[in-house]
Nucleic acid binder design. Structure first.
Lengths: 338, 338
DNA sequence: TTGAAAGCGCTAACAA
DNA sequence: TTGTTAGCGCTTTCAA
């Protein structure tokens, strides 16, 4: 770490100035092919690697981006990360993962990291802007931020998202087509755009089918396993329990199925269940879960691509980029019992 | 990004030198309480934030560590990441996640990132050292590296690990205690220390119980779902199929259970299954999986703590630090059918 | 096409 | 306790 060769060392060996070495190594043209080659040769010989800290200070960039999510513990984000990383690697960017755990303080911290030059840009998957940024006149404009899957209103930020309403409608319609009438819904945490979208899709599909939504058929969850269990307890206690449940994410769907089984209901024999996300292992779950699949990898790729464009000085897309979803029909849904 | 206040601005406002401002803001003592307070005041007023790039160049540190894993897509690593992050945050370090996908080139790349000053230290969870580092005389000594869960031989690196052999033995003994004699094993990818340890634990427990391991009872897998399925196909084709299977990780165990069910076997009625890892959702899986639980969060915390000590100039622990595991008995194991 | 010189913003040695 | 000065290693004007 101490006696690493620096540009000056190469310059001396090659009998040129540091500036020429820099130019040669960054392939910025403006150097004779001969000297360029000689310098590269010497660099390899000395096992030279540029000091990124010095370069970063000079170029005012860090060649890193921040991917901020609610909870790194959620496997859902991993594929998105992979997509971001794949595009990043190809362009020399590294990816820092930020974990907010819904703590506004931590959300603000990551924005500070952007400001402090820790990263050049950020992909936001939390759907929230820290208060002191949302309000600030010159707050966010000069920060490179792309919102993925969530929606941040009125900040003029580019979005990469899916159509939660349409996807949910098609999921519920699948249940309707199977012959279900008594279809319940377990929502996500409630004022959030994503949860609202999925619930609205459910409501629209029910309205389109001409079905009422009885009291108690919309149970509130928080995307966690346990809340799926709780919701099922509530639903089965209703005078007319549902024969099918559309759940706002897979994790709660697992909890729901688990609880249904514990209460003696067969899935899909007695109750059909549809999830949302198609998380890892859904196919091995028993019964394999019918669910809405999102192109997570592509979402990550696209978000990073948009971010890179912004970092390159281009304007972000004015309209949200909507990625396609797909309803995967597996074995957790079936026609209702006679 | 352009007109951000710098130390010089604060210095002018406060009528002191930049050096004093730096000292005041880093709380390095040596400053009158009065000026210290005044400077902090002005800094807040100006919304000053230090430029990390400049600081990093000057201090020769980046205040980041690298967590290198085989596959970010594996939820297993997430809790480790959380632990690392928790300790890191408390001490001002950010965590970069590195994904090698078993590609030696990428593994080498992350070492280069260390060398280039991208990060100050690294937690290695891949069990491999790039060839040009392992051999190099002054290669790894001056790099701050901690190995977690894997084992890197002969490099004098500190290790944080679990006792795979003992953990596997207790898992197999659980099956023996239930009355099983015909116990098979699905291994991980094979020359890897982790897979070898788990297999050896299996063999030891079988030997202790006085049971032979019939031909074909050790099936090779690769930690992925599909290989669990394949292994079960092989096992059920044997003249004397096993009544219990100890699987080297949960993901393959899910695949195995899935396949058992497809082939008409009840778990645990006909075949008992034990996994390893206790990954996320294991409790909701049907049947809830009996498995070996590792303290992933604590492993991450410990690895980071050791790394910080090394970065602080202390010597790493000479002996591997062994974290405790626990056998979680759930519902995928039962006595063999008469 | 190349070199000289300046400086990114900060911290640390040394001197006062 | 504070200020002066230098410099981390690189890139980028500007001039030749």
């Amino acid at each position: 770490m101490n006696d690493r060769p620096k540009i000056k060392d190469i310059a001396e060996r090659a009998g040129v100035s540091p500036a020429t070495v820099s130019r040669a190594l960054t392939d910025s043209g403006l150097v004779t092919e001969a000297t360029r080659r000689r310098i590269h040769e010497i660099a390899r010989e000395l096992n030279y690697r540029p000091n990124v800290r010095a370069r970063n200070l000079r170029t005012q960039r860090s060649m890193a981006v921040l991917l901020v999510v609610r909870d790194v513990g959620n496997p859902f984000y991993l594929d998105v990360l992979k997509g971001v990383e794949a595009v990043g690697r190809a362009t020399g960017y590294s990816v820092l993962m930020g974990n907010t755990e819904n703590d506004p303080e931590r959300e603000a911290e990551y924005f500070d990291m952007l400001r402090d030059g820790h990263a050049d840009g950020m992909i936001l998957m939390t759907g929230k802007l820290p208060g002191d940024i949302a309000g600030q006149p010159a707050g966010i404009e000069d920060l490179a931020v792309v919102v993925a899957l969530e929606i941040v209103e009125n900040a003029g930020l580019p979005h990469v998202q899916i159509d939660n309403i349409a996807a949910s409608r098609s999921a519920v319609r699948h249940l309707v087509d199977l012959g279900h009438r008594r279809i319940a819904h377990i929502t996500g945490p409630m004022p959030e755009t994503m949860s609202v979208g999925r619930r609205d899709g459910y409501r629209q599909a029910m309205a389109e089918a001409g079905f009422d939504i009885p009291e108690g058929y919309e149970q509130h969850g928080n995307y966690l396993l346990e809340s799926g269990r709780d919701a099922v307890r509530q639903l089965l206690a209703l005078p007319e329990p549902p024969t099918a449940i559309f759940v706002a994410n897979d994790e709660m769907a697992y909890g729901a199925i688990h609880q249904l089984r514990r209460m003696g209901r067969d899935v899909p024999g007695d109750v059909s269940v549809v999830g949302f996300d198609d998380i890892y292992l859904s196919q091995a779950f028993y019964p394999p879960l019918t669910t809405v699949s999102q192109p997570r990898l592509d979402i990550g790729r696209m978000a990073m691509t948009v971010l890179l464009a912004i970092l390159a000085g281009e304007a972000g897309p004015a309209e949200p980029i909507v990625m396609p979803t797909e309803l995967l029909i597996r074995a957790s849904t079936a026609p209702p019992a006679a």
